[in-house]
């Protein structure tokens, strides 16, 4: 059974159809890249998979491990193993990052019927993961993403990914706003999480990110559909020729 199956997905936002019958199949262990011009519906797809309100699904299906994802609340999806790394992680003053991480991890474990982490075990785990991502301890005491640079915010997303151990990671424009050094650190963190049990969907406008996170499959999206799929060479081809050839489609 595929990990994720998107079948003929049609999505509207405020009466305007954004996805016009999109299909995508992702298996365990695979890394897929979704590329496409602005407005092609890449972020909409990531939001609909994660369950963001404001989107109306008018047709099609999303199956995750064979279950109907669209029937689930966003928190149920997270507990089942769906993780969206946000393009623009929000700042939440007044909620300490550490408190948030513990609340979220234990909420997911509870939803899966697993025992909650004890505080010492939790702290140990967070410290290990944070150290591997060069995230200083004082960042964890601050409000969520408050005063974080663009790179720190993305590293914080990777930290959560490492902590929650999801089976499907969707990285929405992870490279936006990052310089090359920050991109490398974040990409190294993501690569460390590649595993035969986990799949990743990397959404990006630019090929650059795919030099660091090398995909197994590349899809090109245009006007709310996948118009072409291929191996990693497709990304290089796109870099050379641009998206214009697909705009006509």
């Amino acid at each position: 059974m595929p990990l994720l199956e998107v079948k003929d997905l049609q999505v509207r936002v405020e009466e305007r159809e954004i996805l016009h019958g999109l299909s995508l199949t992702v298996n365990k262990g695979e890394v897929h890249a979704i590329m496409g011009p602005n407005g092609s519906g890449k972020s909409t797809l990531s939001h609909v998979i994660a369950g963001k309100p404001g989107y109306e699904v008018t047709g099609g299906q999303i199956l995750f491990k064979g279950e109907d994802l669209l029937e689930m609340e966003p928190d149920e999806r997270a507990a089942k193993g769906v993780f969206l790394a946000f393009q623009y992680p929000v700042e939440i003053p007044g909620v300490a990052t550490m408190t948030f991480l513990r609340t979220a991890l234990n909420a997911q474990r509870k939803a899966r019927g697993e025992s909650e982490y004890s505080t010492p075990n939790f702290l140990k785990k967070v410290r290990e993961v944070a150290a591997s991502l060069n995230i200083p301890q004082d960042m964890l005491r601050r409000g969520i993403n408050v005063g974080f640079s663009g790179g720190e915010k993305k590293r914080n997303e990777v930290l959560q990914m490492a902590l929650f151990e999801p089976s499907l990671c969707i990285l929405d424009e992870m490279d936006s706003g990052l310089d090359i050094d920050a991109l490398r650190v974040a990409a190294d963190g993501v690569n460390a999480l590649r595993s035969p049990d986990r799949a990743m969907v990397v959404i990006t406008h630019y090929q650059r990110l795919l030099n660091y996170i090398v995909p197994d499959v590349v899809h090109v999206m245009s006007k709310g559909r996948v118009v072409k799929s291929g191996n990693k060479d497709l990304a290089l081809e796109l870099e050379a020729s641009g998206y214009a050839q697909f705009e006509e489609a």
Binding site: G51, D75, R77, I92, P93, F100
Partner: peptide, 30 residues
Amino acid sequence: LDESLLFYLRARGLSEKEAQALLIQAFVGE
């Protein structure tokens, strides 16, 4: 409550009430 903050927390596994509670605590925290 800011919907984008609520969604961020829910996407990390917090139920609607838990997410609201965390944001309410932050709001009165000041």
